[in-house]
Structures are given as C-alpha cells and as structure tokens.
Design a protein around this nucleic acid. Structure first.
Lengths: 137, 137
DNA sequence: AACTTAGTCTATCTTTTATATAGGATTTAT
DNA sequence: ATAAATCCTATATAAAAGATAGACTAAGTT
C-alpha cells in the first residue's frame, strides 16, 4: 500500500492540476478541500518542491503551483519520490535494488521471476499514466 | 513493498515445497537454510499453520509441512494473509476496502481508476502464480 | 517603514507497525 | 522418563508513519 504521504500528495497534485490557471494555490485551500492535516500537507508540498515538481511563492498571493504540465508528471515518479520502491521485493527493484539475503542465487529464484513480472505490469501503467490522466476536468 | 514477514514466508514455503517428500521439516533447518531468525520464523510458520496452509507435528521427528500441493497455493493468498491488501490504495482493495476520505466521489476519481488497473494487473499474476511456479526443483 | 500573509525549515512528538526475542507449556518419539 | 520439537503469549526494540509546533523569511499592501 502507498503511504498516507503519497496518497495525500496525489490528491494535492490533482487539485493543483485542476487549478493551474488560477495561479498559486494556498496550502490551506488544498488541505480543507482534500481533508488533509494542513501541517502534514505542508511537509509534503515542500518535499515536492525540493524535488522540482512544484514551485511556490511566498507572501500574500502566494501558494504552490505545478512547474510542469500535468501530462509530464508520471505517477511512478511521485511514488518513488515519496514512498520509494514500487517493486514488491528489494531484489527486484529497478531504482532501489538490494541483494536478497535469503536466497543463494537470484538468477535461479522463482520468486524473483514472478515479482519482476508484477513490477513490470505495475510500471507499465504507473510510468505511462500521468497527472493529466487522473484529473477530472 | 512486502514486509519481511511475507518475504520470509515465501522463502520458507519454497523450502517446504522443495522438500515435501521428506516429511516434517524443522524450523531450525528452514531458518539456517534461508538465513532467517529462528524465532521470527517460528511465528510466521505458526500463522501459516493457523491459516490452514501448513500442518505441523510436535516432538521428535516433528516439524512443518505443506497441507496442500504447491500448485494449490497462490501467491496472492500468502500476501493477503500476512501483509493485507495487495492494492496500492485502500479505496481500491477488493479484500480490504476502505472509503477514501480525501475524495468526494470515488466514482469520478481518476486516481481510483488508475490504481484499480494496477491492482488488476498485479492480481492477474499473483492469483495465478503458485508455489509450484516458484520452486526450483 | 510597518504590517500582514504565506511559505520555509527544523525539530519534536506520538502512535503504529515491523521486526525480533524470551521463556514456559505442551506434545511426541524413543 | 527424557529429549526434541512445536505452541503460545508476552514483551522488547527499532523504525516508520503521521502529525504538530514554532520561529524564520519573503513578498505584497498600506
């Protein structure tokens, strides 16, 4: 399962994408709209900003906004950023690979095979679906 | 990611499947073979036993053994038992569904759609692949 | 220039979950 | 009876998740 952090991030990004034309959006607006703790959301948006996905403007009239078009932001990117690996096992992760301590030879591990297939099936969707695909407007 | 518990369970089940002909297998044998803490593994095997997947025999000559043929034990079953939902979001889980607090109407939620597809793609594999498919012998 | 608004940043807190360990009780083969 | 093994419950520990606090900085407004 995705962490709350990532779930909230998606909902916030959807809100930002749906309101791209209106300039910077207040954290508080997103929080109340999506029913998220404002302070927790603040941390999440900051993380998205530091990752180059969002921009922000301080002071009156400030807020957060998307730095790219929604169609440029793939779901997989957000998940990896906030949750880490998409794969079910570390030994099968493309971006966060770790050797398997429980198996003598990954090349001969049937578990490895099946989990690689699950990863590929998931990635095929998550790499290709973007924010644009999940906004309602 | 799958929890260590589930990862260990898979490795243990593979070992049991590969040694079905030899009668009950010692926890300690599995633990040392797969490099798992013996006490932690004990709890896991017990849970698998209580779920009707394994049988056990106490005392000398005792140990754990599979109650079904490897081909009868689907990966999805083990994951759900030890880790819970396979879906990435609670609002998209078939077996552990929970309403989404951040969205006004799940029927119109694009996130819901994409995550349902990921779930289906994963399940297609995990429901059909069994222990038999991941053993090496 | 002062004021207000809003994000920045870091630290901390609490709760939950994951992981692991301990040890006595029970069962079974010999 | 003894030794070997699982059973079972409790607990410890560590890590992660989730949430909160508050002082700081930047930008616009008056």
């Amino acid at each position: 399962m995705l962490s709350k952090k990532t779930q909230y991030a998606f909902h916030a990004l959807v809100h930002l994408a749906e309101n791209m034309d209106k300039g910077p959006v207040l954290i508080s607006e997103i929080a109340s709209e999506k029913n998220i703790s404002i302070k927790f959301l603040e941390n999440i948006l900051l993380e998205l900003k530091n990752a180059g996905i969002l921009g922000s403007k301080k002071g009156k009239g400030g807020g957060y906004y998307l730095l790219k078009q929604p169609k440029e932001i793939a779901m997989a990117r957000i998940i990896r950023l906030l949750d880490g690996p998409i794969a079910l096992l570390p030994c099968v992760s493309l971006n966060y690979y770790e050797r398997c301590d429980n198996c003598k030879d990954e090349a001969v591990c049937g578990l490895h095979d099946v989990m690689s297939r699950v990863r590929d099936a998931s990635l095929k969707i998550l790499e290709n679906k973007t924010l644009k695909d999940i906004i309602t407007k």
